[in-house]
């Protein structure tokens, strides 16, 4: 419910004329920024869970991830509908002109299989391990989203740097965690061997 607040606020401001002189641009930017925020939040769950050992956090991950997809869809729809008004020829010409659109589009498309396979049934059908591998696509989406944001602005300010740093930190955490896991495994191996024998 709280995750819908940004949308409600945006709709409220839109209806009351509180947006700027260029409301379509406001809607594009606002949905875009919430997409990247939810992507960062999704990525933050696992590290938080490991650090705090609050394993219940995992129940929020799917919902937050789906909200990232939800705002991403609104953002994409805004572009297709409000910004370009279904002018497919213009869109096709626009995309190669604007690398930031291409990378945004790629990031968004990679979220589709994740959203589709988010149900319990799909997780069971794929099997946990394959599902895990598939859902690592979010790492690419997150990096793509940061590049999208950096490429679309005229001058890079602290905002783009903040998101890029957050994504980098969250991915680095996973890498370090994995390396730590591997080294732990190594030190435990001699002890394991006799057991296995």
């Amino acid at each position: 419910m709280l995750c819908l607040a940004p949308l409600i606020l945006l709709a409220w401001n839109g209806l009351n004329g509180n947006l700027s002189a260029n409301p379509i641009s406001d809607i594009t930017n606002e949905t875009g920024i919430w997409t990247i925020r939810f992507i960062v939040a999704t990525l933050a769950i696992t590290p938080l869970r490991r650090i705090t050992r609050l394993h219940g956090l995992i129940t929020f991950r799917r919902m937050i991830g789906l909200f990232a997809f939800f705002y991403g869809s609104l953002h994409f729809t805004t572009y297709i509908w409000l910004d370009q008004f279904f002018d497919w020829r213009a869109i096709l010409k626009d995309i190669p002109k604007r690398p930031f659109i291409m990378i945004g589009f790629a990031s968004f498309v990679l979220m589709i299989p994740l959203a589709v396979t988010s149900t319990q049934k799909m997780i069971r059908r794929l099997g946990g391990r394959r599902w895990d591998i598939l859902h690592r696509l979010i790492y690419i989406t997150a990096v793509g989203a940061c590049i999208h944001y950096i490429w679309l602005v005229k001058v890079v300010t602290y905002r783009q740097i903040v998101y890029a740093t957050l994504v980098a930190a969250l991915l680095l955490f996973r890498l370090l965690w994995k390396l730590r896991g591997e080294s732990l495994q190594k030190t435990h191996q001699p002890a394991k061997k006799p057991l296995a024998a």
Partner: peptide, 19 residues
């Protein structure tokens, strides 16, 4: 002549919906 990162063929007049 497009800007390297976006097209300059059209514009949105502030207050209008269509470009």
């Amino acid at each position: 002549v497009d800007h390297p990162r976006w097209s300059q063929a059209r514009e949105r007049r502030i207050g209008e919906f269509f470009k």
